[in-house]
Computed example of a mutant assay.
Amino acid sequence: MSIWENFWDLIWWFLWAFAFIAYLFALFAIIGDLFRDQKLNGWWKAVWIIFLIFVPFLTALIYLIARGKGMAERSQKEYSQVRAAQEEYIRQTAGTSASPSDEIAKAKALLDSGSINQQEYEALKAKALSHTA
């Protein structure tokens, strides 16, 4: 057996492995989309799953052709919801960052109300101004 026969066997094996892994990715995407779809009732989901088990390649191909556009829309909708939730979490965690003039105005209000003394006011003012530098 020559080295080239082994080489082409290896290439053929990689091709089949790639096709199988690509099929698994498509299968998991289809199953995830089935359970993400709120409009499809449970019986239709069960029918799709049964066909995916017994006629996997044909069912996956039909699902991608028939429901591919809706699949993309549901995926985009979920991505948008996750992104909005992340942005809201970041806003809540980071809090509102006031400008130095806002911080100085708040400190001045505290000074005027008598809650802090002149030295504390100067310290807050210096801290607010140091954030701009």
Rank of each mutant, 00 (worst) to 15 (best):
residue 35 F to V: 05
residue 37 D to L: 06
residue 38 Q to M: 05
residue 39 K to D: 03
residue 40 L to S: 05
residue 40 L to W: 08
residue 40 L to Q: 08
residue 42 G to Y: 07
residue 44 W to Q: 06
residue 45 K to D: 03
residue 46 A to M: 11
residue 46 A to C: 05
residue 46 A to L: 13
residue 46 A to I: 05
residue 47 V to C: 08
residue 48 W to D: 07
residue 49 I to A: 09
residue 49 I to S: 07
residue 50 I to Y: 08
residue 53 I to C: 11
residue 54 F to N: 07
residue 54 F to T: 09
residue 55 V to W: 10
residue 55 V to Q: 07
residue 56 P to R: 10
residue 56 P to H: 12
residue 56 P to Q: 04
residue 56 P to Y: 13
residue 58 L to Q: 04
residue 58 L to F: 05
residue 59 T to W: 09
residue 60 A to R: 08
residue 61 L to D: 01
residue 62 I to K: 08
residue 63 Y to I: 06
residue 64 L to T: 04
residue 64 L to G: 09
residue 67 R to V: 07
residue 67 R to P: 02
residue 68 G to Q: 07
residue 70 G to V: 01
residue 70 G to H: 06
residue 71 M to S: 04
residue 75 S to W: 09
residue 75 S to L: 09
residue 76 Q to T: 10
residue 78 E to M: 11
residue 79 Y to V: 05
residue 79 Y to P: 01
residue 83 R to F: 11
residue 83 R to A: 13
residue 84 A to D: 14
residue 84 A to Y: 09
residue 85 A to E: 11
residue 87 E to V: 15
residue 87 E to G: 02
residue 87 E to L: 14
residue 89 Y to D: 10
residue 90 I to Y: 11
residue 91 R to M: 15
residue 91 R to K: 14
residue 92 Q to D: 15
residue 94 A to S: 13
residue 95 G to R: 04
residue 95 G to M: 09
residue 96 T to G: 10
residue 96 T to V: 05
residue 97 S to Q: 13
residue 97 S to T: 12
residue 98 A to P: 10
residue 98 A to R: 15
residue 98 A to F: 14
residue 99 S to H: 03
residue 101 S to Q: 15
residue 101 S to M: 03
residue 102 D to G: 00
residue 102 D to I: 15
residue 102 D to Q: 14
residue 102 D to C: 10
residue 103 E to D: 14
residue 103 E to C: 02
residue 103 E to W: 02
residue 105 A to F: 13
residue 105 A to L: 14
residue 105 A to V: 01
residue 105 A to N: 15
residue 107 A to K: 01
residue 107 A to Y: 07
residue 108 K to Y: 03
residue 108 K to G: 03
residue 111 L to A: 00
residue 111 L to P: 00
residue 111 L to Q: 00
residue 112 D to A: 05
residue 113 S to Q: 14
residue 113 S to H: 01
residue 114 G to S: 02
residue 118 Q to N: 07
residue 120 E to G: 00
residue 122 E to Q: 11
residue 122 E to W: 01
residue 122 E to H: 09
residue 125 K to P: 03
residue 126 A to P: 01
residue 128 A to W: 12
residue 128 A to P: 01
residue 129 L to N: 14
residue 130 S to W: 12
